[in-house]
Write a protein that binds this DNA or RNA. Structure first.
Length: 217
DNA sequence: CACCAGGCAAGTA
DNA sequence: TACTTGCATGGT
């Protein structure tokens, strides 16, 4: 359903509470679309600190470029990204993505930006190793397209506060946000960033009570 | 020491 | 279709 009506008051209310409490996020951490795309794959089920170490290694090796990542041997790449964990798997996934990026878009960010978002999203999802969260992270944070990123924190926070039913699938929860909020890249960017920061600091898995959580509860 | 982290795909019944 | 399992390092 494409919605043309008003934004959901409750959802915007939550957004404003979080923003007031935590302040602006300046996300994605890391500079430039290429680094963001690489980070989106490396951070799959992995703490960001580990990803930073891997990215720093790639920078030190002069390998953080489309050309280098397209040409580098998979085994070599695996060694460089070792601190990120699942490094054999992620090396394969990075190679698969950059192979797609090179062949389909000649390694040009701008070519991707010219595509309709949902079509590009489907293309990304067809790449082995790119699932819905990684695809949406690339679309939103690297390409600045208005898609909402759902992650483990989003599920946990919303269900813990009884804002949605449990057992909601990814696409349903994504639509939940996008159908109730204006299609605004900046809003989706900040909202997701705030949810992750809230999750890290106040809504941890081993801490069922949200302590100082600004949403109450 | 045990547990967790900004997923995803392949295998099983 | 609905579960389960493998993948791995580094921080708390």
């Amino acid at each position: 359903m494409v919605m043309a009506g008003k934004a959901d008051e409750n959802l915007l209310n939550i957004y404003h509470k979080l923003f007031s409490f935590l302040g602006p996020s300046h996300w994605w951490p890391g500079e430039g679309p290429l680094e963001i795309m690489v980070g989106a794959i490396l951070t799959q089920n992995t703490a960001w600190n580990n990803v930073e170490q891997a990215i720093n290694r790639l920078k030190a090796e002069g390998a953080l470029s489309v050309k280098a990542l397209t040409q580098v041997n998979e085994g070599q790449l695996a060694e460089w990204i070792r601190p990120a964990g699942y490094y054999h798997l992620k090396a394969r996934r990075l190679k698969a993505f950059f192979s797609f990026f090179q062949e389909r878009y000649q390694g040009r960010i701008q070519r991707m930006k010219e595509r309709p978002m949902e079509e590009l999203r489907q293309e990304l999802l067809s790449v082995k190793g790119i699932g819905p969260e990684t695809a949406d992270s690339i679309l939103l944070y690297a390409l600045e397209m208005p898609t909402f990123v759902v992650d483990a924190y989003t599920f946990r926070i919303l269900s813990r506060h009884h804002l949605v039913e449990e057992e909601m699938g990814y696409e349903v929860l994504r639509a939940y946000f996008m159908d109730r909020l204006p299609r605004d890249t900046r809003l989706y960017n900040e909202f997701h960033a705030l949810l992750v920061r809230l999750g890290k600091d106040y809504c941890k898995k081993n801490n069922p009570r949200c302590g100082l959580c600004p949403l109450g509860g």
